[in-house]
């Protein structure tokens, strides 16, 4: 769980590690920035997600290209609500719930 002095590490993945994961990264930074939580968002390609998680010490993975990535030790959330704006509030509620654990 993230405390005030710890930086939250999030892996944002999409198909090419450039396009939609950037949108996710920007919106996550904005959200946590407004709350005063330190966050580091790393972008990556969905095919590399499993390998990145094994070596990267992430608190959360947000994917826009399917959330069935074979990752078991870190929670994986579907980031599409951040792109469409539909269900954005539920998404952040889910983020809070997952990070509290």
């Amino acid at each position: 769980m993230a405390t005030d002095n710890k930086t939250l590490r999030i892996l944002a993945v999409c198909a090419d590690g450039a396009a939609t994961s950037t949108v996710v990264a920007v919106r996550l930074r904005e959200y946590f920035g407004n709350k005063g939580v330190k966050v580091e968002v790393v972008q990556g390609r969905v095919v590399d997600a499993k390998r990145s998680v094994e070596s990267g010490k992430f608190d959360l993975v947000v994917s826009t290209a399917g959330s069935n990535l074979g990752i078991t030790n870190v929670p994986v959330l579907n980031g599409i609500p951040l792109l469409t704006g539909i269900g954005k509030d539920q998404f952040f509620a889910e983020v809070e719930k997952v990070l509290k654990k």
């Binding site: 999409c14 198909a15 939609t20 969905v46 539909i86």
Partner: peptide
């Protein structure tokens, strides 16, 4: 748009993780 039940056009990148 969602009131009219439209589909939102998105990047095909969303499908590439399948």
């Amino acid at each position: 748009g969602s009131q009219r039940g439209l589909n939102f056009g998105m990047d095909s990148a969303l499908c590439i993780g399948h």
